[in-house]
Amino acid sequence: MILAVCGKGGVGKTTVSAIGAKALAASGVKALIVDADPAAGLAMALGIEPKRTLNDVRKALIEEVKAGRRDERDLAVSVDYLVAEALTERDNLAFLSIGRPEDVGCYCKVNVILKDAIEMLGGMFGATLIDAEAGIEQVNRKVMGAVDYVLLVSDTSAKAVRVAETIRDVSGRMIPDAGAGLLVNRVREPAEADKVESYTSLEVIGRVPEDDTVREFDAGQKSFFDLPECPASVAVESTLAAAGFLP
């Protein structure tokens, strides 16, 4: 199953993804973790330093084409090789980062490689978790075409919920077979989540409380692989189970 964590910037997608990665590590399932956000926050949250990224793959492919090697099959097996080189492994997990192009502006080409990589690798792992770029860009560009479930993350603000609804609308058109559900993050009082649930058209499948342990890990840049069981981690794991992603 391929699950993408999507939502407005700053709502805690990366934290949710990091807790999901820790849960997958504990499950023993062979899993691919994709940091699809050019901000590269997931690598940092997990304490992973990728030696190569998909942007490096892109640069290597550009060199191949510049050298006159344009045969499609040769380029396809080269992508397979280069993407494998870009995987950073830790026990049953393999981590892939989109990276940050030095040139400012369009990420389209890296996103195309990301789409191909997800399609190529996704079926070879028992589970794939993608920490998507904030907003709708990657969903809109069909980067998430192979995704089975879109986990929408919002905090309790109406603006974040609206962005999640927009992403659901776009993903519903682009990947109509994918499931979708909302995780309401950083809930301080149950009434806050009740309020969200009262007006949103999204199916709320999880509520994650504000949690000092998570805040401490974020602030201290500690690896979420070392996160002890806490209310937020329990809630994220039960949400991922509700999405059918974790047993």
Partner: peptide, 13 residues
């Protein structure tokens, strides 16, 4: 057996 190849470098991993 996982096999990956980079034709331009003639490597097989």
């Amino acid at each position: 057996l996982s096999v990956r190849t980079m034709p331009s470098k003639q490597v097989l991993w």
